[in-house]
Computed example of a mutant assay.
Amino acid sequence: MLSIIKGDVYRVLPPSTILTKTIIEEDNQSIPEWFKKEYAHWKEVVSDREFPCPFGTVAEINGHLRYFYVENDNFHSLPHVLREFLDLSRRTRTRHAFVIFIKPEIPEKPFAYYESYFWDIINYLHVNDEMEWCEDISIHPDDANWEFCFDGEPIFVSANMPGYKHRITRNIGNSLILIFQPRRIFNDISYKTNRGKNAINLIRSRVESIEKLPFHPDLGEYGNEGYREWKQYIITDGIEPRSGQCPFRSNEIRNEKK
């Protein structure tokens, strides 16, 4: 079976289901070596008790994360597996997150390349979303209420990539890595709760200690009029705030599909 993605024909389709920690570590045939290598590095970094995000560490150690990988720019299965993940997430009280690894580029690409690739995936998912945009979430990225939505769910998406040379806590290996977290899993760990404030302050202090940089100016509380959520998905690699328009194309690409 062939799949035509981004104008080229590729011979192999990606996996068609989400992966668990156990599957990755026990599989010896169907999972490519590059992915097992990148996952092993991810596990080593994220499982470290000094990793900035304690929630991520607990999730990795306890096997609560779910994974997927992309090769040859082939996004064909992404909409299906993201729906599969969201269905799993809705059926449990566990704070699952979905982590997608993109096959490393050799040689390594510049920051702007990974940033563009990230938004290509987000726009591809949007145009292939079978559900209408969430009624209570703005579809315009320049609105403080905007969040990426898919399958009727607001989802916070963040990126790790080798293009980060200064914001090194966002560089976890050779892959561009996308992390999808349903907005609802943050309900009791936001700025509005003591637990959330304490956790966020801990994360910030750890990041500043590791990076030797002030906390990034684009990072803030969701819905705060002074911030834009899309800028937090991929922060700049320094102390300067993001400028320009959001690459998310909203309804125009869905209209093109029709």
Rank of each mutant, 00 (worst) to 15 (best):
K43H: 11
W42K: 01
R91C: 12
P52C: 01
I200L: 15
E256M: 14
R195K: 14
L213A: 07
N198R: 15
G226R: 13
L2Q: 11
E153Y: 07
F111D: 11
T22H: 13
I122P: 02
P54N: 05
Y191T: 10
R204P: 03
R195M: 09
D218I: 07
S243Y: 07
Y39I: 09
E71R: 11
P214F: 11
E153N: 10
N160M: 14
K37I: 07
F98L: 06
N128P: 06
Q29T: 14
K21T: 13
H96W: 01
E50M: 05
V70S: 02
L19V: 04
S175N: 06
I200M: 14
F35L: 07
Y233K: 11
I185H: 07
E50Y: 09
F101E: 07
R249Y: 06
K109W: 02
I172R: 02
D142Y: 05
S47N: 10
V207L: 08
Y124M: 06
S3T: 15
F180I: 05
T92C: 08
F156V: 04
D143N: 14
P14L: 02
A159E: 03
P110C: 02
D151I: 00
D237W: 06
K6Q: 13
R242F: 12
K37E: 14
L19D: 03
W133G: 09
K258V: 12
L82E: 08
I122A: 10
